[in-house]
Write a protein that binds this DNA or RNA. Structure first.
Lengths: 135, 135
DNA sequence: TATAATTATGCAACAATGTTGCAATAAATA
DNA sequence: TATTTATTGCAACATTGTTGCATAATTATA
């Protein structure tokens, strides 16, 4: 747990370990309020700053979707990183029924080309019905 | 201008025409503050509600990107619609230099399949350097 | 075209979300 | 263990979005 932080050059503090534990305790992406619920007691501002530094150091990434949906998920080894210039080999699946956001791996990402535009990274979001919500 | 509203079953009012004019005056997606600047005088709440109803009626769509970027762009004929269940044949390109968001048409969208997941729509966002910002 | 039904507007008040500065404290470095 | 450096917790503030309600405007109807 501590090593996850150290490897990313993030100072180890008790609170950061708590937050990391929360991420490890749930497999899908979590909203701020989900994280807060799991934390119990915490300082709101410290949590913001913790999430920010986790993002800046490539430990977690932010997932946003139309409709004011914002979630956070742990990064994988393979993730590129550094703030918002983050490249995944996965897409984000948002289930309309249960509202869970899953990071799903894909073998290859599509390769777009636009004349005179330089592409640096891709973000793909899919909406539909997840595994668990199929009747 | 009025017909654009009528066709989408949106009541025609002077303010809504003003907002539509703003959308027509700029080809790329616009943030709330860009829209506000172009409007001059306006009521903040009415603007929120106007954008909401434009979205609900498939006249504009919302584009969100990691890093608290939220923009609005006009829908094309071909767009699916209805709130956040909106399907484009285009992707959203965000330029890191000038921060413009372009809606770029693509011939075909990638076709993902995940066993036991039903896909209803796709949202693809690309970051890089736009045409105008290439040196 | 006047009237009724319906929806939009503008304002106040509020709620949620995110930011900044700063003193005290804790972690890493030498 | 002393020093440097970063984090924490608090207050205050800024931004963004929402709700209720009376008034006004738009659309439908007779």
């Amino acid at each position: 747990m501590e090593n996850l932080l150290k490897n990313k050059n993030i100072r180890v503090t008790p609170f950061r370990i708590d937050v990391l534990r929360v991420f490890n305790s749930f497999e899908n992406a979590m909203s701020l309020s989900q994280i807060e619920e799991k934390l119990g007691s915490f300082d709101r501002i410290t949590l913001y700053r913790t999430l920010k530094s986790f993002q800046e150091n490539g430990l977690i990434h932010e997932i946003v979707m139309p409709g004011d949906i914002k979630k956070y998920a742990m990064c994988e080894e393979k993730c590129g990183h550094k703030e918002h210039d983050h490249q995944h080999e996965h897409i984000h699946f948002h289930c309309k029924k249960c509202s869970e956001v899953y990071c799903l791996d894909v073998p290859t990402l599509p390769d777009f080309h636009f004349t005179n535009y330089t592409i640096e990274n891709l973000e793909i979001q899919v909406k539909g019905i997840c595994e668990k919500c199929q009747e």
